[in-house]
Design a protein around this nucleic acid. Structure first.
Lengths: 340, 340
DNA sequence: GTGAAAGCGCTAACAG
DNA sequence: CTGTTAGCGCTTTCAC
């Protein structure tokens, strides 16, 4: 009975041609005032909604934007997704979220799915590990990369973060407080972001006149577990007096390890996290951190989405936003407990 | 040049009919081994992806599931969205997130958008305030309500939380610790959830032999700001010795107010939050809370999505999952500071 | 085994 | 001002 309400069913119902209905509903066209109202009223009564598939088939752009994220259980990504979703609400777009778990395979699957439904744009945090097959599908999509970029994706717009300054500064700050055994836990160097952060840490150490020790530079595929594992190892070594994190989930994992091991922060160990979730202010006396400008990233992304042009070349921009070191109480001066 | 690759363009390219291509790609059909491979190879080379719009138009179900949430900046919702998104990844579905900000108008807009693209199901946290127009659009959609339910949406499947037990228990627990001035901050009663929680609080007070005081029962449209405002007022009154929260965002807002006012928890004030974000363990000596079983809710939702049947009536289920009181150190015994 | 035709809902381009 | 036709990409149905 309640078959789908279409332009034709309304036409039949009203005894007119479906074209007249179409025109009346798209308003702008030239239809008599009477018919227009009659049609619009009936359409509303019947609960008519236009069929997006039909319009897509005719070549109109869809309302769909894809967002590829490693996870949503991370305040940075959640905030970003939230901002972007708000933008989409305001502009009539619909945001599809795909979780990649930082897995290139899954990323590829998601891209395919999004192509199937002709997503009008894709915002992605690229996963480590390029797949060459993927490239061909990205072509022809409006792609915006976030945070990281990859060899094979260089040609697409990217919104990067310059955290090198903040990371070096963090190291110098710790050095000023008397720390010399400063450890780093970060992403491996298969990603642009991992590479930058690591070299920023090392150059920070050098600037501070410290010697970066290989056993206190821990990199791997970034994750909560990885951060947790590395921090635990550092704590157990008993030598490290300060930890600098180079990744959102790493930071949470490492922090969790410290609290779990009941390390007093900063008395037992100084800690500088990455990202700035709301609760970092509330843990202990506040967690110092490298703050990534999530709101302006979302705003810039929205702006890039707003533009029409996925048209070829030209618009390959590489916006770079600066991170900021936020000092709270978790980075404290060294109580001499170092080498004993 | 790189026009869209379609079944027809491949057919032309190969000099065969588009029907043969279609069959070869859907595999199952009866096509000669040779043609099949030829077609599949060429399709892969060309980067063919099937057109979801075309299939939708023929009446096939889409891969799209909608999720309507007040916000993503809230660990409970983020976790739920994350679990559901993971389920979608695993089953080839695509999850569209719409933010309603608990606004019935926005909710309605989102529902319309989802109907336009023929979403195969919608999971929603209903916003306060029923719109009768909405009902007609829900009809014919596979709807799953979360946490709350509404007058006009009674007929749809709902996944509710029974938190009444945990809330009463929280009050008795506080009473046992010597508190008598226990305040409640929660959602207004326009939603089923608000109603239940409030009455659970009141009955908990009665059971504990305490008198619920109107000026210590604060309800309104739930939000972070609301929680913050109410908690601040309670703190400033100087009489309340314990706060029980009845809402995710309220809880965070109220907690923020306490920390901002530098109240020692539980020495200055005892606190029982709502929801159980990861960091509640890390704040102070741990925040006691009413824990909502987010993982099993997501699992149940996934299960409900898995079923075929949005077919009429029958499957109107009202699953109810129990919340649990988690005691940490934020609910402590009363140091006599009460009335002075 | 393969092909041709029809139609899903919609609008651009022509008639009337 | 209103109606007819055609076609977007795909699969179902019916020929060959």
């Amino acid at each position: 009975m309640s078959d789908r309400v279409t332009i034709k069913s309304i036409a039949q119902d009203l005894g007119i041609s479906h074209m007249t209905v179409s025109r009346a509903l798209s308003d702008s066209a030239i239809v008599s005032e009477d018919t227009r109202r009659a049609v619009q009223d009936r359409a509303k009564e019947l609960g008519y909604v236009k069929n997006a598939a039909a319009r897509a088939m005719r070549g109109e752009k869809t309302t769909i934007v894809g967002l590829l994220l490693p996870t949503l259980v991370n305040e940075f990504y959640a905030r970003f997704a939230n901002s972007l979703a708000e933008y989409c609400e305001d502009t009539g777009l619909q945001l599809i979220i795909h979780l990649t778990n930082d897995d290139a395979k899954k990323e590829h699957q998601s891209i395919l799915k999004l192509r199937e439904i002709q997503a009008r744009a894709v915002v992605m945090v690229p996963a480590p590990g390029d797949l060459k097959e993927e490239e061909k599908h990205l072509r022809g999509l409006h792609v915006i990369q976030l945070i990281r970029t990859q060899e094979l994706k260089r040609q697409y717009t990217a919104l990067l973060v310059d955290d090198a300054g903040a990371i070096s500064e963090a190291v110098r700050h710790l050095s000023d407080l008397g720390h010399s055994r400063v450890a780093y836990i970060g992403a491996d160097t298969s990603l642009s972001s991992g590479k930058c952060r690591l070299s920023a840490f090392i150059s920070g150490m050098r600037q501070a006149g410290l010697d970066p020790r290989p056993d206190e530079i821990l990199t791997d595929k970034p994750s909560f577990m990885m951060g947790h594992r590395c921090a635990t190892a550092l704590i157990d070594s008993g030598r490290t007096t300060a930890i600098v994190c180079g990744g959102f989930e790493i930071s949470n994992g490492a922090l969790h390890a410290c609290l779990e091991r009941e390390m007093a922060i900063p008395d037992d160990i100084s800690f500088i996290g990455y990202g700035d979730p709301s609760y970092y202010r509330w843990i202990g006396k506040g967690i110092s951190t490298i703050k990534i400008p999530v709101d302006s990233m979302a705003a810039k992304t929205a702006h890039l989405l707003g533009r029409k042009c996925p048209d070829e070349s030209e618009i390959v921009s590489q916006k770079i936003l600066p991170a900021k070191l936020v000092i709270r109480r978790s980075s404290g001066s060294l109580k001499n407990k170092g080498g004993t």
